[in-house]
Each structure stands twice: as C-alpha cells, then as structure tokens.
C-alpha cells in the first residue's frame, strides 16, 4: 500500500498540507501532460498567499549556503519555509546532479522545512519551465514562505523577477572589476545585493563597486540595499533578514487574487512557449526541409521562411 492510496484525492490531500501529496504533485506537474494541466488548473485558484523570496547569483557565489543559514534564522523564529532549488540539466544527456541539498543538510529532517530539488530540463532563464505551477502547488499546500533558488546565473537569467516578491542577488568578491558592476544584467533586478564570502580580501572592493554602481544609477535604485554576509559562518544574517523584511512589507497588502494575477503573464508565456515548441518539434522533417531548400535556392528570405515555419507550427493539432 502506497501512502497515496486513500479515499481522498491527491489534490484534496495537498490542500490540507500532506507533504507526500505535495511531493507527488510536483512530480506530476513536471511531467507536463494532460493530467498535470488539469492539476495545475485546480491548484492555481488556491495559490497567491505565499511570499516568494528569490535568490540568484553566479555559480559558487554561495546561494545554497546562504539559504541554509537564512532558513536556520527563520526556523529559530518559528517560521515554516519551503525551498525550490533549481539546478541545470546536462545538455548532453538531459540528466542532472541536484546538489543544492548538500549545503542545506541541517534542515533535512526538520518537518518545518520542505526542500525540493528541480532540474531546469533545458529551459533557459535560470528557472525550470514548470516553476510557476510548482510554486502554485507549494503555495496551495499552505507553505507561507517559499524560497526560490535559481541555477547559477550569469548576466541574463532574469526570470526570477516574474515570480519573487523580493529578489536577492549574490556576488562573490573578486569576480570582476567595476566595469562588470555597471553592465546590464542580474545586478539590476536586485532588491537586496549581497556580497557573500565577505571574509575574503576583495570583499570591501566589491562592496564599493556595487555602491558606486547604485549611486550612478540614480533614484530608481535608491531602495536597493547592500548587505555583506559570510554564509558559512552565519554572519550578516540579521542585516540580510532586515533587508528582506523591509522589502516584504511593501508587498504585504497584496491580496492572493492580485498576486496570482501578477504571476499570470509569466505563467501563460511559459505555457505558450512549451506549446509552441512542442508543435514546432512535431513538424514533419520534410516540411522543414522544403522551407530550408527554398531559402537555399534564394526563392524566399530567411524572414519569410521563419514566418512560414511558424504558420505551419500554429496549425499543428495537439
């Protein structure tokens, strides 16, 4: 007898906080078939209550370690926390090693913490395709705070913006000069900029560069805070907590309905992405070849070839 065999449905059990049901629901949502769509539709109406805190930053900057330390602080205050940790999938095999839990071991057996490792499965942007519906599931299951950890992000993994109430962007000392700091990219999306590993010699320099960047940017960036942490020693957490809490108070009055509505465009865009991609992939190779040959022979331009291909893909029946 599996734990899921009972008279209540998975959906009903998830709503009353059954962790086995939530874990299984996430697996179903990741499969993206008709049943997962039906489940996602039901879950959406029950979401919107959770506060979402996003953590992003380059690989090795200490995202998992800082989350581990921050969660310890939230737990000491009695708060229940769910963590969705996204890691990359292999471009070669599609498999992945999900190692974020390695840094979060102290919360393994704590029933007040739910951790799920999620593979990006080739989806760009720093998060997985199913993240919005998984977020809805965790939210509907009654977890009041959800921490969303992106894959190691470079300069363009900005998707966290669409789902997080607070965006925490980590920097490690010595990764680049002041030109890196003024480039466009994930630094611009931060509500809280963290210089982690601040026990390292170049930490002060990195902090000054970030401060200078914010000053140059003017008023829109006035509310961004810079916090120095040493996650592995649990240092700087009070300041981090304060910065996150300050930002959260500005979104505290948003109703669940409004919150769902805010996340909706990103959710829909991902659905369309997946739908269109599947249709494009299902086109018969000879149809694609015909269009390619028309470009090769100079009969049509690349622009019209792309438009023709898109037209064909739109017409594919699911």
């Amino acid at each position: 007898m599996s734990a899921l065999n009972s008279t209540a449905t998975l959906f009903e059990r998830l709503l009353i906080g059954d962790v086995v049901a939530l874990a299984r629901a996430i697996s179903i949502l990741e499969t993206r078939d008709d049943r997962s769509d039906a489940l996602a539709n039901r879950l959406h109406g029950h979401a919107g209550k959770a506060r979402v805190i996003g953590f992003t930053g380059p690989p090795g900057s200490g995202k998992s370690t800082l989350i581990n330390a921050y969660v310890a602080r939230l737990r000491a205050a009695g708060e229940r926390v769910a963590i969705l940790a996204v890691d990359p999938s292999s471009p070669l095999s599609g498999g992945s090693i999900l190692g974020d839990r390695t840094r979060m071991g102290e919360h393994n057996a704590d029933t007040g913490v739910f951790i799920r490792s999620i593979a990006a499965r080739g989806y760009p942007g720093g998060l997985a395709l199913s993240i919005p519906v998984i977020l809805d599931a965790v939210d509907a299951a009654g977890w009041p705070t959800v921490i969303l950890e992106t894959v190691g992000a470079g300069q363009s993994e900005n998707e966290i913006v669409e789902f997080a109430d607070v965006k925490v962007v980590l920097n490690a000392p010595g990764l680049g000069d002041d030109i890196q700091a003024i480039k466009a990219g994930i630094l611009e999306i931060a509500d809280v900029l963290v210089v982690n590993k601040s026990d390292l010699p170049l930490a002060d320099q990195t902090t000054y560069q970030l401060q200078a960047m914010l000053e140059l940017r003017g008023s829109r960036f006035q509310s961004v805070s810079i916090v120095k942490t040493t996650a592995i020693e649990h240092k700087g957490l009070e300041e981090l907590d304060q910065a996150i809490t300050d930002k959260l108070t500005t979104t505290a009055n948003i109703s669940p309905e409004q919150r769902r509505f805010q996340r909706l465009p990103a959710l829909l865009r991902r659905r369309v992405d997946a739908m269109f991609r599947a249709r494009l992939d299902s086109l018969a190779p000879d149809k694609v070849n015909t269009i390619c040959n028309d470009v090769r022979s100079g009969k049509i331009s690349i622009d019209s070839a792309a438009a023709n291909l898109a037209d064909l893909a739109f017409k594919v029946k699911n």
Binding site: S89, S93, S96, R101
Partner: peptide, 20 residues
Amino acid sequence: YLRDASMEVIYTPPWQKIEE
C-alpha cells in the same frame, strides 16, 4: 554515471541519518 544516463540524481554527502 546515472546523470549521464539521463537520470536526475539527488546527491548528498555521507553520514546521513536514516530519518534524513
């Protein structure tokens, strides 16, 4: 090995307790 065979592997360090 398992990752290269397309699986999603949750990896932990040694010394896990059974309850973990």
